[in-house]
């Protein structure tokens, strides 16, 4: 994998993807007053005729999207991750249950969102959508991967939820390597036989930093960008469980129900491998810079290092 270069927020990737897909006339974009934030605004500017503004009314937006999907459109609806949750039952009953292919994007996910405070910091969205039968759930780590994975939704036959982040993170991919990504397949960014760090979103770059630190202390880690939380790449997890002495998961999300929990559920059936989870420990956030919040929540690369070392000992 090429070295990280530059940086980008995954929400920018979502915006670019909508533009890339716009030549398909079935693509429609729905907004709930946050298009400038989720980055659907670029599509609006280019294609106002296929952009539906629904005001601050998320429940309505989700069912309008589902009505459009039932009529042959491919709707991409976005708002903040936290506000998609207001429409959770709408996604459950109005989208997934009839199997209508609506793609929902929740931006500004996680405590990384920062100074807006805990009301804006969704730490449970991945857990919520993961419980809905037939939903695909993704959380890409940078702009280029978010763009590529969102574009792949154009030919995806299931409804989806994609969490993007507000702030820039180091790029894990370039224009070429991002093309190798596939929905549902974990991406191995680094190989090592001692421990496997499986992460998503903004924690992927922290995981890479942790792996470098560990390496300087003689511990070699595999790092996986598990951008798709559902369906989970269980083959890759089994492979890593056999190869490594343990697995550490890392996510800007509650440890209840997220990526770590999904992996714990899988390995509880597939056979024991020691597991540690780095994530938000059943608490709300507060206002602060992203870095301050990551520190107070225990979401830094040194927290990942600590979990790896405790697991190795």
């Amino acid at each position: 994998m090429s070295a990280p270069s530059g940086g980008g927020a995954s929400r920018d990737g979502y915006g670019s993807a909508l533009l890339r897909m716009s030549s398909d006339s079935r693509v429609v974009v729905l907004e709930a007053d946050l298009g400038k934030s989720t980055k659907s605004c670029h599509f609006r500017e280019a294609h106002p005729d296929r952009t539906i503004s629904l005001g601050i009314a998320e429940q309505n937006m989700i069912l309008v999207a589902s009505g459009m999907a039932s009529s042959g459109k491919i709707p991409f609806a976005s708002t903040f991750a936290i506000f998609t949750e207001r429409g959770f039952e709408q996604v459950r009953n109005g989208v997934a249950r009839p199997g209508l292919v609506v793609h929902l994007c929740g931006s500004h996910g996680g405590v990384h969102t920062g100074t807006d405070g805990s009301s804006a910091q969704s730490i449970e969205d991945l857990a919520l959508y993961r419980t809905i039968p037939g939903m695909t759930v993704m959380h890409p780590c940078d702009d280029l991967s978010a763009e590529e994975l969102t574009v792949q939704l154009l030919n995806h036959d299931k409804p989806s939820y994609t969490r993007t982040a507000r702030n820039k993170t180091p790029r894990m991919y370039d224009q070429k390597t991002s093309k190798d990504l596939r929905i549902g397949k974990g991406s191995v960014l680094r190989s090592g036989d001692d421990v496997a760090i499986i992460s998503c979103g903004v924690m992927v770059s922290e995981s890479m930093k942790a792996a470098e630190y560990l390496s300087s202390n003689g511990i070699e880690a595999t790092v996986v960008d598990m951008h798709t939380i559902k369906p989970l790449d269980t083959n890759l997890i089994d492979e890593l469980a056999n190869k490594c002495k343990g697995i550490v998961t890392a996510e800007d999300h509650s440890v209840i129900g997220g990526l770590g929990a999904a992996i714990a559920e899988h390995i509880s059936y597939s056979g024991g491998v020691p597991l540690r989870m780095v994530g938000v420990s059943d608490r709300f956030g507060e206002s602060g810079t992203p870095r301050e919040l990551m520190e107070i929540m225990g979401l830094t690369y040194m927290d990942i290092v600590g979990s790896c070392e405790s697991l190795m000992s």
Binding site: V28, D49, I62, L63, S66, G67, M68, S71, G72, P75
Partner: peptide, 24 residues
């Protein structure tokens, strides 16, 4: 044409159908 059972959702769905029809 609609999966009902949870009240209050149908008019939104119908609006989506109407907007799609207009685009078509």
């Amino acid at each position: 044409d609609f999966s009902a059972g949870s009240l209050g959702m149908g008019l939104s769905f119908g609006l989506g159908c109407a907007l799609a029809a207009r685009m078509d």
